[in-house]
Design a protein around this nucleic acid. Sequence first.
DNA 1: CAAGTGCCTTTATC
DNA 2: AGATAAAGGCACT
Length: 292
Amino acid sequence: MERLRLGVSAIFNLDYTLGCGQVFRWEKAGEWWYGIIKDRVFKIRQNGRDLIFENADKAFVKRYFSLDVNLREVLLSISKDYHIKRAIQHFKGLRIVRQDPWECLISYICATNKNIPGIKRNIEALSQKFGESKIFERKVFYSFPTPAKLAKASLTELRSCGLGFRAKYIREAARKAMQGNISFEDLRKTSYEEARKKLLHLRGVGYKVADCVLLFSLEKLEAFPVDIWVKRTILKHYGIHFDKGFSEKVSGKNSLLPNEYKALSEFGRRYFGKNAGYAQEYLFHYERLVRH
DNA sequence: CAAGTGCCTTTATC
DNA sequence: AGATAAAGGCACT
């Protein structure tokens, strides 16, 4: 058992962070959150300014939960108006974690046109079928499969995980990753635009999926993913920044054309600045949980 | 309860 | 070029 005491000004809320929909494999049982990262199961809980965890070291916890990020500063930088301030007030302490990029990529390829419970089921099925089992506290956990493991899988096997048309995209991505054609380290180091361009070459990855991977695993905090919920929020509260025709056209339907996605996402980046991704996540969570 | 709609969209085809 | 259809399957109403 390890303990990490947060600084007086280190704002952090574990429940918001793990419950906001950015990660798919954490489960809360009683007070504890159980997760598996790479091939290690660990559990963690929060008690005020203390984080208590088992089977992970402090450096890892700090890094994974982005505790090195000055959240106060980040939130200040995006506090542009009443709407975002209200969302921040509600979920203060929500941090964007640093997911494993490989798992993140596959997760968001699965997310295409799916809801969150559906995505969770896909990831869980993939892990059970192709990952390695780990016993922790007499319970079985499955690690997320490596690229090599998924590259070897047949389309039928992949489909049996409920992936549907996404199965072939996942296999392709796995093959590329296995051959070393996707360097997540390089993507992390390059600029948002460059990294996005590279991710867009992958089939099954459009602007939305690319933005999610960039924000949730590659430290591109300016990425502003626009899904159906964020689209609603933007049009509802920030419609004044778009012309009437655009707003009316986009609000009436439940999908976005590439240029419509771009307009909304670029607005978010311009309006909220270099930490726009944080604004996106607070707005998303607020719209889903509070407003809807 | 059944049936319809929608989902943290992308690709292929008009 | 720009719109539209097609692509799992589950959750929600």
